[in-house]
């Protein structure tokens, strides 16, 4: 009977497994295989080049610019979408804010419902030195704006896009944190109140440890999202000026579909996969640790 059951389970699992193998694992291996060749979508030649594409990747200046930009996105996202949004969530959950919590929660959350294209184009128009509203406002308060072109200058463009991204998604993590904080038993806080703990102490010794799972998951979502960063950059600067705002994903896309260097693009794609895979492993490890605790 047990054997029969196992067979049935196997048969039920087969379609899903096939689907995962064909749609997920197979492309990864095909991608790895293709990264050892020099080829283009439009050319008939398919030359084996060994690890040349990987060597080229590590010698490519733009690759490092992209990594640097991904790191900027990662750091800013973790600081804002984990750090700041955690503070906002706990402030909103505090007793004196409970009444107006709904209002603020909605205000913070609405941007994350907007399409990236809408946010990107709006941001582009706001910071545009010729038609935007930011520069005239800065000028009003006495700032010399003649050289302020946030998206058009290499040194400021990445930070501007990252800031826009934070504005959009901070509310989303705030909501997740609020839900987690609401699940903390109220008696813990009451006990702390009796002991005379301050708000900061309650946050440090009750809130933080109780929601560490949510923090972990949000961090992983935020970090992997930053590594795959594509759409915000594509809509606002498309990697420019020059390659100043290029991320791994935008660069991979350009290399593959504009420069038609599919082999090199495959190598870049495999690199992104490895990085996100390692973070994924850490995620699983994080879960295990929690279970052991």
């Amino acid at each position: 009977m047990r054997k029969k059951n196992q067979k049935t389970i196997g048969i039920y699992l087969l379609p899903a497994m096939l689907m995962v193998i064909v749609i997920l694992y197979l492309p990864i291996f095909i991608n790895l295989y293709e990264s050892f060749f020099k080829w283009g979508a439009m050319s008939t030649k398919h030359t084996f080049v060994g690890i040349d594409n990987y060597v080229k990747m590590f010698q490519d200046e733009i690759f490092y610019v992209a990594i640097k930009n991904n790191l900027i996105f990662t750091v800013m996202s973790v600081v804002c979408q984990i750090g700041i949004s955690l503070i906002i969530a706990s402030v909103l959950e505090s007793k004196f804010m409970r009444k107006s919590q709904n209002f603020f929660r909605t205000i913070y959350f609405i941007p994350s419902l907007l399409m990236v294209t809408v946010v990107g184009i709006t941001c582009k128009m706001i910071v545009s030195p010729s038609i935007g509203v930011l520069n005239p406002m800065l000028e009003r308060i006495g700032v010399d704006v003649s050289h302020i072109d946030l998206l058009g200058t290499a040194s400021t463009a990445t930070y501007t896009i990252a800031a826009m991204s934070q504005w959009q998604y901070i509310g989303y993590t705030v909501i997740l944190f609020i839900v987690a904080i609401q699940n903390i038993p109220e008696d813990l806080y009451e006990a702390a109140d009796i002991d005379g703990a301050s708000a900061v102490k309650k946050f440090m010794y009750i809130t933080l440890p109780e929601i560490k799972d949510t923090i972990l998951i949000n961090t992983i979502i935020t970090v992997t999202g930053s590594i795959r960063e594509y759409d915000e950059v594509f809509v606002t600067t498309n990697g420019g000026p020059g390659h100043a705002t290029e991320t791994l994903a935008t660069y991979l896309y350009k290399v593959g579909f504009r420069n038609d260097q599919m082999g090199y693009a495959s190598a870049l794609a495999f690199f992104i996969f490895i990085v996100t895979f390692i973070i994924g492993l850490l995620q699983m490890k994080g879960y295990n640790l929690d279970e052991q605790n």
Partner: peptide, 10 residues
């Protein structure tokens, strides 16, 4: 000024 933040259509 700021030629890299304007586009042709604008």
């Amino acid at each position: 000024d700021n030629v890299n933040s304007k586009d042709y259509y604008q």
